[in-house]
Design a protein around this nucleic acid. Structure first.
Lengths: 350, 350
DNA sequence: GTTAGCACTCATTGTTATGGAGTGCTAACA
DNA sequence: TGTTAGCACTCCATAACAATGAGTGCTAAC
């Protein structure tokens, strides 16, 4: 209803910060010792009662201290994000380390992202996930057939955005180098720049007419192309540090832990998170999900912070950090901002 | 010292089987009720005392039942393996399901193996791992450069065993199609069939002489080849079902579970297991590690069963199942034998 | 509005008691 | 000599209970 006054806010802040550190319910005495307030525990108690009524904190049981509710965390995080936004990028610390590391091996994106996940996990002590950027490279850029063995043809398919796929095709009848060359020209002149939808039956049959004896092979190649385009934007997700959750007693309960690790291992359910994160492009691409706010049911006892990075216009991926609700939001947001800009620049320069 | 007589063996067997099912220490009364023995609990107790002295079983504490020691499991497993060997492959059950499944998509080995791991995990309720076959394709079979964009060259590198890698190289000066063609011919005529060691400085400098303006590009290509060969037989390991371990209380303890899942997640330590498994090619490629027998320290409270599959002469991979010591060895060994032969045939036909 | 004081609550911890499963040993039996 | 019934003993689990103490809400005084 009514807004929180300055003092209540300070107290709430203190409660949350203390809880972030200790993970234990925090009592009025603890807060009263907090220097810049100079209030007795009784006063704090009164305020705490109010805060509880307003739904920002809660007692696990009578005669225990208070812990923040999701609503309490939300307020805390929103305030922090506002600050961070004003602060702007005045950092640069530990960016260097990451920069060196990232620029080292940019050739294999897969490895790079896996490494990002791992480094982040080690760094933050939370579980992490990184998705491959969601290309929409659905146009064929280039096809190349090469003779590998008498009855094996190597097909190299390059999609828009330089996504490269290989496939080895077995053929029944040998093909001469000249015919192979002709076929290459035919394929490229006919198909390049087309999307999956544009490669329709008309084009296919026209090609097959020109292919002569090589009908069989052309069919295989088109199949391979179709499959490649179809699977091209299949999202990959890398995870790391799943076992970090055991560092937080509130998540170490074996049934909870099992569910959570399972979610991270199987990865399918994480797509919802990524989709959601990509849709909500607020605070510089940083998104904080607290408890039940997360789109993934099995993470309702956790908090998740995601950041979107951009490879090129509209081609985006997501990094996520999964930890207890009492995660160090400030550090996590900072780290994510750093790595996000790093990734952006690494990719942009390519 | 002396061999176990028939009766002791039967009793040991009964104890182990009962323990496999319940996971609880088993007492003399339980065994005495076992039909085909017809002995009183007192007699059983005497025998059990002997078995304990011989080191096959142990009491967690006085006044508890007995549980098998590693030595006990060993005996049990050895006997079982002997039987299985004589039995030979008279199965075929549920092979069909697997066969359909496996033959569906053989093109992407990676996906296939990941799926094997997953299916096995769901099937057995244990954690699983599958390694990629250990190629030794260290010979260059074929190189192909293609123009992708004015300043980007696509390099396709094919190694012995049809391992294909791509790399995009940025160039400073444009290159004409004719020169590219020449370069392709030069590269292939000079390098094909060579190992990393054989591509020495002499060959490189001779090639650079012939390359004319393209020295820069040749250097890049050779680097790419060297890197590819170097990383070619980098072993990949896929794991699945890590969270299955929570189904067994004796492994669910959060510190143990954490260590174990971490081992599975990081994968590095699993290479020791694979190496060992590939070295000990006994019982039709099936290997059983009980407790501390496993080469991976963090799995000393588990048992591991591995099977090696063969892609082609000498090119082998490993499948592993990680579970509690009281795992259902019989079922696991059977399943592994089945999937092993399946994988063998799937690969052989390719 | 703030605070000191006090009675009250309740999770946690430690202690003790009780039950029961399982053993080893002895003595009797076939 | 091998098998079995009987019994005293051990020791883990489980429950019941008491003590502790952190933390609260409320009241009355400042």
């Amino acid at each position: 209803m009514e807004e929180l006054d300055e003092r209540k806010l300070k107290i709430l802040h203190a409660i949350i910060q203390n809880y972030l550190e200790t993970g234990e319910p925090v009592g009025s005495r603890t807060i009263s010792k907090y220097a810049d307030l100079n209030l007795s525990s009784a006063t704090i108690r009164n305020e705490m009662a109010d805060l509880e009524e307003l739904g920002y904190i809660i007692q696990p049981h009578t005669s225990a201290g208070r812990i923040p509710t999701d609503k309490g965390y939300r307020l805390y995080v929103d305030n922090m994000l506002k600050e961070k936004e004003e602060e702007l990028a005045g950092r640069e610390q530990e960016v260097e380390k990451m920069k060196d590391f990232l620029s080292e091996k940019v050739d294999r994106v897969e490895e790079l992202l896996q490494n990002v996940a791992k480094t982040l996990a080690v760094d933050t002590n939370y579980a992490t996930m990184v998705s491959t950027p969601q290309y929409h490279h659905n146009k064929l850029k280039f096809v190349q057939l090469s003779q590998l063995e008498p009855y094996k043809i190597l097909t190299v398919i390059v999609m828009d955005g330089n996504l490269i796929r290989n496939k080895v095709i077995d053929i029944k009848n040998e093909i001469s180098p000249e015919n192979l060359l002709k076929l290459n020209v035919l394929l490229n002149s006919t198909l390049n720049g087309l999307t999956l939808e544009e490669i329709n039956l008309g084009i296919i049959s026209r090609m097959q007419n020109q292919a002569g004896e090589q009908i069989e092979l052309v069919k295989c190649v088109i199949d391979a192309i179709a499959e490649t385009i179809g699977n091209a934007d299949d999202l990959q997700i890398y995870t790391s540090g799943a076992t970090n959750i055991f560092k937080y007693p509130e998540l170490s309960d074996s049934s909870k832990a099992s569910e959570l690790i399972c979610t991270l291992e199987e990865k399918e359910r994480l797509t919802d998170l990524i989709t959601d994160s990509l849709q909500n492009e607020d605070n510089q691409g940083i998104q904080v999900y607290i408890g039940s706010e997360t789109p993934v049911q099995t993470m309702k006892d956790c908090s998740v912070v995601t950041a979107n990075y951009e490879l090129r216009d509209g081609v985006k991926g997501t990094i996520g950090i999964i930890g207890p609700k009492r995660m160090d939001y400030e550090k996590v947001v900072e780290t994510l901002q750093t790595i996000r800009t790093q990734l952006d620049t690494v990719f942009k320069k390519t």
